[in-house]
Design a protein around this nucleic acid. Structure first.
Lengths: 217, 217
DNA sequence: GGTCCATGTCAATGGACGTTCATACATCGG
DNA sequence: CCGATGTATGAACGTCCATTGACATGGACC
């Protein structure tokens, strides 16, 4: 009845909640803050979400779905070469995490507070993603494209490498500032390059894999 | 008057707070939870800390000091070789973050909530640490020990590399479980190896630097 | 033995929180 | 034109919160 709903109110609530959950954290953000930022009273929120928790779940579950979709598309684009696959996956996810840094950080940080079936869902989604990366690494090692002997003399452990790689891309999102020195594409190329190098891909192998770059040059 | 203070009460409060802040987050943890876990009433806490915020500050500032000290000791141990320096720093900090995961994560996550001189202190501490890593990388590049051309053809950006390296070690602390498959020393060797490799150290250069390892083999 | 100080209890205060509910309006299909 | 439906209000609720201040107590030290 009040203002022009050029955008559906439920989406505006979600967008505001993302902003505030990101800035203040989920527990410290009150329903009153969210609604009054939209010129509404607290009760109005309950026409769109059953509870504060359900609002959080709406954000978190959409984000997880988007991550899995991004991963899937990257694999389709990559073809069969494990080097190319690792490159595409790290690049695409870095782009995702920088472009959706707020939702991603909220999801990572607050999913544990959801009511009880949900945290397990999120963990299993994370596990699927990790297994995908592990399989890329395993194939790459079998084809002798990745070099597993680390500086220091030890053999690299594939599950640890997969975790290290995935953690790294979220971190790009944590500190990325859209007004910073580098754009999303530059940053993604940097991270993809660093992570492929971390996986022990020799320079000549990388050259042979013809890795595309979205950024200029 | 009540129980035997085999340990000073202030330290017991800090230890309990670390546990609860880590599990539930700072805003959701109440003074009542902390004190009643020790068999005390809420008021007792105010004999040791002026406020909940000051309790958080006690934890966070100690942790930052310990990180800087760890870094300093690692540099002393490393001598002049940039490869060896990077190895020592990454290994030592990975060990620190896994052994003090709770305090470290609390510090990283909640320092922004402190009253106003403090967040700036924490940021400048972080900046000092990052500059140290950047200097190691710069020297290593000047001596042609680190190889800056990434897979994909781009030149690696040193500030980004430094951020990526430092973020990585915190993450080891995030998911490390003391009862897991690998111990602290194994994990630290893995991470140090991966990060030195990420910095573009060629295998023969690494061999020449005689990197020590604390773990077996 | 008396005094003091550190440390604790207990009760209270004022505010903020998530959520509910009866009520009102506005829009739109029939 | 009318009722139904979706949406917002505003006031209340019960609960929990951090913090305070008056009071008790026990050990350390003179």
């Amino acid at each position: 009845m009040t203002t022009a709903p050029t955008e559906k109110t439920a989406r505006r609530i979600e967008a505001t909640a993302v902003e505030l959950f990101f800035r203040e954290g989920y527990p410290k953000t009150s329903i009153r803050e969210i609604t009054s930022a939209l010129g509404l009273t607290p009760g109005a929120l309950y026409n769109h979400f059953r509870s504060k928790e359900e609002l959080l779940y709406a954000i978190v579950s959409k984000t997880h779905a988007a991550i899995e979709q991004t991963l899937e598309e990257a694999l389709l684009r990559a073809g069969d070469d494990p080097v190319r696959q690792l490159w595409e996956v790290t690049r695409s996810l870095t782009v995702f995490y920088t472009e959706h840094q707020k939702e991603a950080i909220i999801s990572k940080q607050e999913y544990k507070r959801l009511p009880d079936p949900h945290p397990a869902e999120m963990l299993s989604s994370e596990r699927r993603i990790r297994r995908t990366v592990e399989r890329i690494l395993e194939r790459g090692v079998r084809q002798e494209l990745f070099h597993l002997t680390l500086p220091g003399g030890r053999e690299a452990d594939i599950p640890i490498m997969a975790k290290a790689i995935l953690d790294q891309m979220i971190n790009a999102g944590v500190w990325f500032r859209p007004d910073g020195r580098l754009g999303v594409a530059d940053l993604a190329d940097q991270y993809a390059g660093l992570l492929v190098q971390m996986a022990g891909v020799a320079p000549d192998v990388a050259r042979a894999a013809t890795l595309p770059s979205t950024g200029r040059a």
